[in-house]
């Protein structure tokens, strides 16, 4: 049995994390609008997708490293509930939900904001702590992510990179700016953005000695670096495309505009994916 004071501290960290990571979204008009214009089926898919990411994140990088799947599920439900609650309170004090609105509008806004807050809660609980997490963490974590310095488990890396990409990219994805940039830049500039994204990703992962980088990539050869960076960028692009698709940014756009938006957002997603892989699991 965990002492109550410790649980409270964990929830406190989660709440602060949720606010830190998702405040930009709570302050973004386009997200409020998406809350009432999105079809309820999209919102359901969004909730399910977020829950899947929470499960993955809690399993691979969460705070209870000796946890079984049941505990991971319970934690994910708690985080999602906290996310929804925080989102409702913040939206209310910001005057974004009022009691004369239709329930559809209120629930839509709370849901769409709450999901990002939930990921923030999850990351905050696991990452903002000073190490009073459950004992035996180091050992079991290494086991979980696939063993010490070499052979970092691909599935775990993938999930964490995806979470990082979504967490970062979601902050800018719903804004009008992505479409504006995508329609106004030339294809050469898009190419430059793509190359810079890949380069930044590889530098973050392999060159800057961020915490955790050693464990992730001991000393890869040139080919290893290229493969790693490309996979990283691919994850980032998939994350961007999914988020844009969800916010209806592809509707009625020419193919080049869709690709452009994905690449423009891909820069943010790459930063999230690569930094996420290092920072979100760097205890």
């Amino acid at each position: 049995m965990r002492p109550i004071s410790k649980s409270l501290r964990e929830y406190g960290r989660g709440i602060i994390g949720g606010l830190l990571f998702s405040l930009p979204l709570l302050y973004t008009m386009e997200v409020w609008w998406a809350g009432f214009s999105a079809h309820p089926l999209h919102l359901i898919l969004y909730v399910i997708g977020t829950f899947a990411m929470l499960l993955g994140y809690n399993y691979f990088a969460g705070i209870r490293h000796d946890a079984n799947w049941l505990e991971v599920v319970i934690d994910s439900v708690e985080e999602m509930g906290l996310g929804v609650l925080i989102s409702a309170i913040v939206l209310y004090i910001l005057g974004r939900i009022t009691f004369d609105m239709t329930p559809q509008e209120m629930v839509g806004k709370i849901t769409i904001e709450g999901m990002t807050v939930a990921i923030g809660v999850s990351v905050g609980t696991a990452q903002l702590g000073s190490g009073d997490s459950d004992t035996g963490e180091g050992a079991s974590k290494r086991k979980r992510t696939g063993g010490g310095s070499k052979n970092v488990h691909f599935g775990g890396q993938f999930v964490i990179a995806l979470c990082g990409a979504v967490l970062f990219a979601a902050n800018v994805a719903p804004t009008e700016e992505i479409v504006v940039i995508a329609t106004e830049v030339s294809s050469w500039q898009l190419l430059a953005i793509a190359l810079i994204s890949i380069t930044l990703g590889s530098i973050i992962l392999y060159r800057l000695d961020f915490t955790g980088a050693q464990r992730l990539a001991p000393e890869p050869g040139a080919i290893g670096i290229i493969i790693g960076s490309v996979i990283n960028y691919a994850i980032a692009l998939v994350a961007s495309a999914l988020i844009l698709l969800f916010f209806g940014r592809f509707e009625g756009e020419a193919l080049i505009v869709c690709v452009g938006q994905t690449i423009v957002l891909g820069l943010a997603a790459t930063l999230g994916a690569s930094a996420g892989r290092l920072l979100l699991q760097s205890q």
Partner: peptide, 24 residues
């Protein structure tokens, strides 16, 4: 290994998530 507070938070979370899904 869950204490009372954690079960309460879980219960509230479960109710919130399930009712949102039901409403949607």
């Amino acid at each position: 290994q869950k204490n009372r507070v954690e079960w309460i938070v879980f219960g509230v979370g479960l109710v919130l998530v399930v009712s949102i899904l039901a409403f949607l």
